[in-house]
């Protein structure tokens, strides 16, 4: 399980980094989204993978799922969602202002 999710995060990050380095705004936006997926999963993982345990300490439960990363990841999701929305609008604005979707505003032939 741990190995599977680690590999998943690795692939997402690699894809995100690759897409971020592309020269058009659409792949860059996708890349940033993938990066934020990767980082959200990573943050979630940091509470360790625990299955079927309550997120609070009770007297009966012997083990518990760490609730803090869940709160952190919720914050991170909201923020990255807002950032993605902003950057999409910005990319559209850049597309209309500059007439093409190159990140430097250059026309490539």
């Amino acid at each position: 399980m741990e190995a599977l999710i680690s590999i998943l995060i690795g692939i997402l990050t690699a894809g995100g980094v690759y897409l971020c380095l592309r020269s058009h705004t659409f792949p860059v936006v996708l890349g940033l989204t993938l990066l934020s997926y990767a980082v959200n999963l990573f943050l979630f993982m940091m509470g360790r993978l625990v299955i079927g345990k309550p997120p609070i300490i009770t007297e009966q439960a012997s083990n518990y799922a760490d609730p803090l990363p869940q709160a952190l990841v919720l914050t991170a999701i909201v923020i990255s969602f807002a950032m993605t929305a902003y950057i999409i609008v910005l990319a559209l604005k850049a597309r209309t202002e500059m007439g093409n979707d190159h990140v430097d505003g250059k026309e490539i032939r």
Binding site: L35, V39, L72, V103
Partner: peptide
């Protein structure tokens, strides 16, 4: 774009520390 990438790095770092 560069600051959004920076923010994901911040989260990775904070995640490892936690």
């Amino acid at each position: 774009v560069i600051n959004v990438v920076g923010s994901s790095l911040f989260l990775f770092a904070a995640g490892i520390l936690y």
